[in-house]
């Protein structure tokens, strides 16, 4: 592969997150390097999605520090994280059901659209020009994801696999630095999984996007990721390249139980 793994882009240090008395994450530290594919795995309820929610500002950890590009990140709201270049897809598809595929992906361009509401109401020059400019970008993403034929379809009517693809498209429209993927292949058949893997690797390769991936399909994880973090009951029990993690006794214990 031609891509070069760069420096640490996001550094999480001693993150702890509690909901009342429930400890979702306990003292977790790991880093994410530029251009890498970083997987987070673990059994159900291990805190993987919570981890993503911490990264993009939905949850606020009680303890720990987050450094993004070397700077400590203060209090963060999701839309602020988005404007610093962190995009994500959702485990249960969270598309805008009433809107077409095109509009869903166009919504991802929102942060880059600057004309004011008056110009938009009058559909005057700059607003129209901006709309066309971003439409061009969106069409590139539509081509990339091979969903040209459904661009005008309301997403509510699409089958599951395509919805997942649109979800990815919407995140890509933001031209993110870091792309968080929450189980992008859950519930897919083999062909759909292969397609999705191809898209993820292409995004990583062509746009140099750093990818953080939660996935249950171990074959996929071991295949496409550069480094893997393993969580169990909100604690980190493994971190390293896929082969290291696979061989770690702790990880085997978490997945298969003791005594093996």
């Amino acid at each position: 592969m031609s891509r070069i793994i760069g420096d640490v882009i996001l550094d999480l240090q001693n993150i702890s997150l509690r909901f009342g008395g429930v400890k979702a994450l306990t003292d977790i530290s790991f880093d994410i390097r530029e251009h890498e594919v970083r997987a987070i795995i673990g059994p159900n309820g291990a805190g993987k999605s919570s981890m993503l929610n911490v990264i993009n500002g939905v949850y606020h950890p009680q303890e720990g520090k987050i450094f993004y590009r070397g700077e400590e990140r203060r209090k963060m709201e999701p839309h602020m994280a988005a404007s610093t270049g962190i995009a994500r897809t959702f485990q249960n598809i969270a598309l805008f059901k009433g809107m077409s595929v095109l509009d869903n992906i166009m919504t991802g361009r929102n942060l880059k659209m600057k004309t004011n509401i008056l110009l938009q109401a009058l559909w005057l020059g700059p607003a129209q020009k901006e709309e066309i400019e971003h439409r061009r970008k969106v069409e590139e993403i539509i081509d990339f994801l091979e969903i040209q034929h459904i661009r005008k379809t309301p997403v509510g009517r699409l089958p599951y696999g395509l919805q997942k693809r649109v979800d990815l498209g919407r995140a890509l429209a933001m031209e993110p630095q870091i792309l968080l993927l929450d189980e992008p292949m859950a519930g897919m058949n083999v062909e759909e999984k292969q397609d999705m893997c191809r898209f993820i690797l292409d995004v990583n390769d062509q746009f140099g996007t750093t990818i953080v991936l939660i996935e249950h399909d171990m074959g996929v994880v071991m295949d496409i990721s550069d480094r893997v973090v393993v969580l169990d009951y909100g604690k980190k029990i493994g971190d390293g390249v896929p082969d290291e993690v696979r061989a770690s006794p702790e990880v085997i214990k978490a997945y298969l139980g003791a005594g093996h």
Binding site: F90, D103, L111, A171
Partner: peptide
């Protein structure tokens, strides 16, 4: 419409 259909996702893609 994004806020109407799915406000969490809307916020995550940068809508205030």
């Amino acid at each position: 419409m994004a806020i109407r259909d799915m406000d969490v996702a809307a916020e995550v893609i940068g809508i205030r």
